[in-house]
Design a protein around this nucleic acid. Structure first.
Lengths: 340, 340
DNA sequence: ATGAAAGCGCTAACAG
DNA sequence: CTGTTAGCGCTTTCAT
């Protein structure tokens, strides 16, 4: 592989001049510039970013770390981030944390984060204590529902409130037995699931209804299959479900399938509402009703915050929460108008 | 940020000893080892992988480059690769090529590939001439339907044959007007779309049927929306479609939605079959009929080939083709048995 | 406008 | 078992 000094030799200049040309640092005559560029092409030289990073401490690359690649929500998110960063001349790489063997690897991957100029981390397995152990100089913006130590920038969504709105709509349109699929029975820490389950409870409380713990359906992985089984079983067992709040759209897809398996009509017999407003949701089952967590806004804020943090580290940690918005489509009934 | 020599100083040893401890190179007394490890923890030292890479030429990291993160197929693929590589003690990072501004960036990202021990590239925009310009020492395994230069390892699937099987099934079960959604009318080069369209034509030829060019429906991006509009329009325009071969499952989701929009029953009025057998396909519309391109096998082979190429570069390029398999679910009718 | 020297943090190769 | 020397390919700094 050719190095900079190969180019320098071929062009009859010093490596410094080649470096200056390649970095557009001006102090080079147009003529020299051209000659160098010519040789670069001729030799097929490609800069070694590793060496640059070691010396200059910059890669123009940021990383996004998500729990899984094969969940629609994270796929959409990754695509949105890639676009947003591309606009700012940055390159995005995505890593999956879910599959990695914990132990040694988790330590190693901390080191790996230092290879980037900045990191957007969507932690799922890691609790606040784990996160607090993160001590690298790389700017990090946290995403998602976990509790994160104060000192990190954090962009999240209105999980409980969004869930409350969704369940309130279900109740408002006549449902009395609202199952929450993917909910958390016992809360071991604050998770996406636990927060959305809190919202489910809150909606019941608001309406003066009892929230039957029997209606909290946990699902085994993979979540879609788990949800499909869980709801089909619930129907078979005669739980009397007349509406479902699925904690994610992904899970809602499983619920829709399970309901179809059981021969239940949506929204006629059972209403269904999801959470995330994933891209594909507009297209399934005539349009899945769901909660838009404001992903657009989240991406914008996270990018903006990371850019600011990379530029200068001396501002107070930002803690941002995106408001949620109900998106009513074909899997729910309209609430009787309360206006008149 | 602490460096190795900080640790060395604190532990009263040389940097080489620290390096040896961290790399498990044995030649260190248990006692020294412990002392070093102790200091590492105490100082919170994290190895600088960039420096290691520069010196040792190894990152234990491989990259997968896909056109988009937000297509179910690539999400599934990425997850499968991540798992396969994790099993072999390698870390996977995923990059998206689709969003990147061409021009300068495309050159730059070539340089970026050198930061990895190996690369799996799923090229879409790039033609063979572009690919031939790739001249980096990093082992690369190509994926997908593009024609790639001989000198690259290449793992792909039976695109035309899979499509032929799908369309043959449709015809066999009575369809006479099989639209291909996402097909390629004029072929500018060999693409996924053009190959699957070839299969659609071949099935017609096999059955002694004329393939009506009117039934080749191209779709605008985003593909799901494009497909939804295209099929709805085709139905409205009275094209007489009685079956649809969607060139990807993603597009099939759009077709299903468009058919629903038009009030057409599936598979009663119109059968639908996709291609890819994406994870979620089992769950939509009672189960989407599709073509399994053997993704599992593809992932295994690609990983195996890349590992071999990283270990030693001196074997002939491998060109592997995965066989396709029909997966019949609820969106197609059974073919009348030809057995009796 | 161009170049020489120094060194980023680590490890290969060898010496003790 | 441990340390010394050299240098990966680039950019910073300072000279010319």
């Amino acid at each position: 592989m050719a190095t900079m000094s190969d180019v320098a030799r071929a062009a009859g200049v010093s490596v410094m001049t080649v470096s200056n040309v390649l970095n557009d640092r001006g102090r080079v005559s147009a003529e020299t510039r051209l000659r160098v560029l010519e040789k670069v092409r001729e030799i097929g030289y490609e800069i070694d970013l590793t060496a640059r990073r070691l010396r200059a401490g910059r890669t123009d690359t940021v990383a996004l770390i998500v729990p899984r690649f094969d969940h629609a929500y994270f796929g959409d998110l990754a695509a949105a981030f890639a676009e947003a960063f591309a606009l700012r001349g940055r390159h995005l790489v995505v890593e999956q944390s879910g599959a990695s063997v914990e132990g040694e690897l988790s330590a190693l991957s901390l080191a790996r984060l230092r290879m980037y100029d900045g990191v957007i981390l969507s932690p799922v397995g890691l609790g606040a204590p784990d996160l607090d152990r993160i001590a690298i100089p790389t700017p990090i913006v946290m995403l998602g529902e976990q509790q994160v130590p104060e000192r990190f920038d954090h962009v999240t969504m209105a999980n409980a409130e969004g869930a409350r709105m969704a369940v309130a709509h279900l109740i408002g349109s006549g449902a009395r037995r609202v199952a929450i699929v993917g909910g958390a029975r016992a809360s071991r820490g604050v998770t996406m699931s636990s927060q959305r389950t809190d919202g489910w409870r809150a909606a019941h409380a608001d309406a003066g209804l009892a929230a039957d713990p029997e209606l909290v359906l946990e699902v085994r992985e993979p979540a879609v299959d788990g949800a499909r089984d869980a709801i089909a079983r619930a129907v078979r067992d005669g739980l009397g479900v007349d509406a479902v709040f699925a904690v994610t759209d992904q899970i809602a897809f499983g619920v829709l399938a399970g309901l179809a398996d059981a021969g239940v009509a949506v929204p006629g017999d059972v209403q269904v509402i999801g959470f995330d407003d994933v891209g594909i949701s507009r297209h399934v089952a005539g349009g899945l009703s769901t909660v838009d967590p404001g992903s657009r806004w989240i991406v914008e804020q996270a990018v903006e915050t990371l850019e600011a943090r990379m530029a200068r580290a001396d501002f107070a940690p930002r803690h941002l929460v995106s408001p949620a918005r109900l998106v009513l489509r074909a899997t729910t009934k309209a609430a009787p108008s309360s206006r008149r």
